[in-house]
Design a protein around this nucleic acid. Sequence first.
DNA 1: ATGAAAGCGCTAACAG
DNA 2: CTGTTAGCGCTTTCAT
Lengths: 346, 346
Amino acid sequence: MLPFHGGQRQDVIFLTIKEIAQLAGVSVATVSRTINHQGKASPEVQKRVWDIMKKYDYVPNATGRSLRTTRTGMVLVLLPLLSNSFYSPIVEGIDHAARQQGYNIIVATIQMDRATEDRYLSLVRMRQVDGLISLSSTLSTAEIQAFGQQHPFVIACECPQDARISCVEIDNYKAGYDAATSLIRRGHKRIAMINFDYVSLSPPLREKGFRKALKDAGITPDESLILHTEQFDIESGAASCEKLLSLPEPPTAVFCYSDPLAIGMIHALAAHGLHAGKDMEIIGFDNTDVAGVFLPGITSVAQPTFDIGVTAFGLLREKMLDLNSTPKRVTLPHTIVYRDTAKEPK
Amino acid sequence: MLPFHGGQRQDVIFLTIKEIAQLAGVSVATVSRTINHQGKASPEVQKRVWDIMKKYDYVPNATGRSLRTTRTGMVLVLLPLLSNSFYSPIVEGIDHAARQQGYNIIVATIQMDRATEDRYLSLVRMRQVDGLISLSSTLSTAEIQAFGQQHPFVIACECPQDARISCVEIDNYKAGYDAATSLIRRGHKRIAMINFDYVSLSPPLREKGFRKALKDAGITPDESLILHTEQFDIESGAASCEKLLSLPEPPTAVFCYSDPLAIGMIHALAAHGLHAGKDMEIIGFDNTDVAGVFLPGITSVAQPTFDIGVTAFGLLREKMLDLNSTPKRVTLPHTIVYRDTAKEPK
DNA sequence: ATGAAAGCGCTAACAG
DNA sequence: CTGTTAGCGCTTTCAT
């Protein structure tokens, strides 16, 4: 908890509800009612009050209001980084839903750093915001659950299996299964996966699905074709590609945990004079902006990002209305967007 | 101004400073002093109070505190869109500087929509945040100036020439001049510019600089080579490229207002079997993530984004300390990052 | 060093 | 329909 040294800002003169009341010749209650409950004051009085408010450019003080009502109308959304475009449409979905309920959303990034995340969790604890949607947390399952018991809190995209907390995500197991199946149906037998090795929940699920699809197709997963990287960035993709190409029998298709990994693959392939989509088929993940922009176009598993956002806010709203309501887990369907690097199977 | 219907949240029990005081057997004043002014209470009492606070997981209520101190410790950063990676490092710079002064920053997007922007400006007016940094505003110069007189407000990247408000940006005229000069020194004579045609401040400045560089080199700007697009996206870049290629005498080099325009150019070139950097040199703008990732790598004018952010917060801090302090305009230096699509001149 | 008390701006119960 | 008033949780004089 931080000490706090207040420094008054006495430089701007602004009116309070009390002064408006005096100017309009009514009580503060009437002004408040005029602002908040349109029916509760006579039309003439209301007009007079509105006119005064407009004339003096009155704006109610949110802090006074919040102290009284114990709500701020703000919801915090926590992202890992601002620069990952995957999250943008999720945030837009949250914002869309939030607005319809009269909430403003604000965004902050935790930089994958526990201390930073804690600073923003404090905003919730101190009730500077009414609720929290986290798109990526460094908290343990136990901490997540505890926090969710004390504050309106929902998780999107990376839901701990066993935490009793509202969350929304895709079925990562099925996504891995579907991506692998798509490549199998294209006739591939030697299929690699470049997986992300961070302490994150989706990678093992996607890998399980991937392995299951191969087995179901009668293909025994070749461990030398299943790589794990500490980052899911372009460099890791390129490095992994080099490893795969140096194998006695390289794969003919690759399923990547992320689009940047796929881009790295394409880079490395190009360095060898090889072409993604022709010499090797590649499927990325998240269908980020760059997937559609890149040359060649990157085939990618797409999450229903906007809907994830809308759903997340809906879940949060339930918790804000009743913290003791039963947590819900929502699973939304993914799709595969086919472009140049892996064709759609017939 | 929105009506506001408060709904109490009585579902969570949390302690107030008063209860902590009772539990510790001291007055609320002592608890407050313990939290905020470490020297003002005896060590024994302080320890007792801290222990109680820890034991009962006490967190001070930010709203009560803010009402009393008239500050919230939060600064709002307004972006056009979340998905434009150009802004990410600016926000990081703001955040970095803000933290050092004990502020939290929160981000919101105006979606280039006036109504949305107004909703967030209200957060400032209602004093739900202490200040505002806008990276892109739909306000008129007069409105910007007026708002800046009433609230701590600084603009980054797109500063109205004649508004008396603190702001930080690059010299867009010089950036246009430098980009053109770079291409001229590579020996190009027919140099095109694809400019953004929105009611925005930087496009005409960059174009002026571009034209001046040509003139200084004894080249008369060919109007058929200076195109204006309503968006600065990939599609516009591709369309512009088609126009240029259909000219009797197409350009050998192009300066684009943005990186996406450059990507569109590369796409269209590729569709004609031509290669950016070989058949036509291209310089983009903003050095966004994708510029370094794309194949071929995109040469781009880079803004000192992190520093812009740090500087913006510094300017805001001055205004938060004294709203009547003289507004400052800061100009930061740009650079050109050379990659494949345009080589560095010798 | 500590406590009592005022009051930040607002909403809502209560009374009329 | 309107006014009076209590009080949300906190910080900070002003006493002691």
